[in-house]
Design a protein around this nucleic acid. Structure first.
Lengths: 107, 107
DNA sequence: CAACTATTTCAACTTATTTTGAAACGCTAA
DNA sequence: TTAGCGTTTCAAAATAAGTTGAAATAGTTG
């Protein structure tokens, strides 16, 4: 395999291909890509942004985004699992709100 | 549909459910979720981070991430389409590098 | 132009994610 | 305890995304 000269030179300056590769940790990549996956669905990203404006019960989220109960529950769960939102039961309702992590990804 | 009292009060204070909904623009959501989708795949996120350390030809990326040509090309294309990286032909090779947008998402 | 190297494209296939609707669960109040 | 409302769960079906390997393209060099 050949390599363009200028790139080869720059790579050597940085300690070679292995040194560069080692700067990117697979564990960090795996963790962060999971967060991005949760954010990659328009409905979920919208919900996250709504909740960053105002904590809401499922019924109000549903009214805003106009979707089915089970679909909404599915997406809320993914946001919750990835640590972007949390829900607390309050009588008959569950109020969802963004976590500290979630606030980082407000558009 | 009933709504928990404290939430209802907070929502009213912010101008009602419609006002809150209108703060989140579907166009922004659609655009941003596309970027997150590109970042949600571990291999892609790894490549983005590698390129943020050092612009590389496809052959060197391939050597680092140990994957097939066509698979790599597929993922590079998704990163490119979402504006996170760009490639410029240089003789026989294509050198990929992160864009300004891409640099924002370095881990 | 022919041979060569690096990279991309394509269609068939596999795998992962999302949607659906019905049923179940949990809390509250009668 | 039963009824009612808000929410979740489940499995089946639908859709989207990723993988594969062979063939094609594009640039370079002799």
């Amino acid at each position: 395999m050949e390599i363009p000269k200028p790139i080869q030179k720059q790579v050597q300056k940085k300690g070679g291909i292995r040194a560069i590769a080692d700067l990117v940790e697979d564990k960090d990549i795996a963790h962060q890509s999971r967060v991005y996956h949760a954010l990659s669905e328009p409905l979920r990203l919208k919900i996250l942004n709504l909740l960053s404006i105002q904590p809401l019960c499922v019924c109000l989220i549903k009214e805003i985004v106009k979707t089915s109960d089970s679909k909404l529950s599915y997406h809320l769960n993914i946001l919750k699992e990835s640590g972007l939102i949390e829900g607390k039961q309050q009588g008959n309702w569950i109020i969802y709100y963004v976590t500290k992590l979630g606030r980082k990804y407000r558009i």
